[in-house]
Nucleic acid binder design. Structure first.
Length: 336
DNA sequence: CCTTCTGA
DNA sequence: TCAGAAGGG
């Protein structure tokens, strides 16, 4: 089973200098969205005050559907064309991290229950959010929703961010949207963070790979080595070394030499680790097409199966129609 | 998280 | 009219 909380991404916050942008700057642009990242945000964030996620009357979690429906329709209304990119299988050797984080989740679940018994809602919500987990149901229902909404999605072979990056490098998307900085390692020229509608707390950010590399004075291959020292989803990194120290090391030495000098060993072969970022497995069998909303199917899925309100759904559908008509008139004008 | 309601 | 609270499923 795949758990999305298992990816936290490389800790590059201290060394990147993102640029504040507006939603308007993304108008007309195709954005490849890291689905796992997005789903995790919704699962952990869309909860009641005691931490309980939203569910339908049969007990299925619906937090992710709520988030996906409203955010997707809103960004479409703003003229942004989303493509969701889902994770494939994590590499075998990611297993240790998976096990560790499973333990963290179990503990969070326990503390959530305790907080509920104590009547501490704030604490309950905090630990509930930390206990969020992915399941085949979450992924499948998210994909179903995208089908009904007419939004394209791609199934990756490996990391979603690697596949999303491929779309950018292949000029099929303008940028990757993810909260993680890993797409820098995969080589996405453009990265968008905090792609939300009511993003007041965390403002929309733009990160340019070329600019970032030249600011840091590194090549991408070196940035990957920096990441391996700091720690990634695939290796622990070296204790006591953060991004800034790692950059100094990589600028004055090769990673091989440094590791030999300091007698450092990674859990896995160095080149194998590097290749996860520099040569990820890409799925080439996909097609990207925005379809009109299947209103009947969407209503049945969301309202009948998952208890969403018809009125609210209509609102979301209307936002989607907005772009469809704009798109149509454009193709009508130029396309013939 | 996003939308809707609320009351100054 | 609008910021902040409440509700959503």
């Amino acid at each position: 089973m795949l758990f999305i909380g298992d990816r936290m991404g490389v800790k590059f916050k201290d060394i990147v200098t993102p640029q504040k942008i507006n939603l308007k700057d993304l108008e007309g642009k195709i954005i490849a969205i890291d689905a796992a990242n997005t789903l995790y945000q919704f699962l952990s964030g869309i909860r009641q005050r005691d931490g309980t996620p939203l569910t339908d009357s049969r007990g299925n979690i619906t937090s992710h559907l709520t988030g996906l429906l409203y955010r997707t329709s809103s960004i479409v209304e703003k003229g942004i064309k989303p493509i969701y990119v889902f994770d494939g299988k994590p590499p075998e050797f990611k297993d240790t991290t998976v096990k560790e984080r499973r333990a963290v989740r179990a503990e969070a679940e326990q503390k959530w229950k305790e907080a509920l018994e104590e009547g501490d809602e704030e604490k309950a919500r905090k630990f509930a959010s930390r206990s969020s987990r992915m399941s085949p149901y979450i992924i499948d229902s998210a994909k179903k929703l995208m089908d009904f909404m007419g939004i394209p999605y791609i199934q990756s072979f490996s990391e979603g961010e690697a596949q999303a990056t491929y779309l950018v490098r292949n000029n099929e998307a303008w940028a990757v949207s993810s909260q993680d900085y890993d797409c820098l390692l995969f080589g996405s020229e453009k990265i968008v963070r905090n792609l939300t509608i009511s993003g007041k707390l965390s403002e929309l950010e733009y990160l340019d790979l070329k600019k970032t590399l030249s600011q840091l004075g590194l090549k991408r291959e070196q940035l990957v080595d920096v990441a391996l020292l700091v720690g990634t989803d695939f290796n622990k990194g070296v204790k006591g070394i953060g991004a800034k120290r790692a950059i100094k090391i990589i600028k004055s030495n090769t990673l091989e030499k440094y590791m030999k000098e300091k007698d450092i060993e990674f859990e896995h072969d160095l080149d194998e680790l590097r290749n996860l970022f520099l040569n990820p497995e890409i799925n080439h069998d996909y097609n990207i097409k925005w379809n009109s909303v299947d209103i009947e199917g969407l209503e049945n899925f969301m309202c009948n199966e998952h208890d969403f309100s018809k009125d609210r759904l209509q609102g979301a559908i209307k936002k989607m129609e907005n772009l469809n008509t704009k798109q149509k008139s454009l193709t009508d004008w130029f396309g013939k």
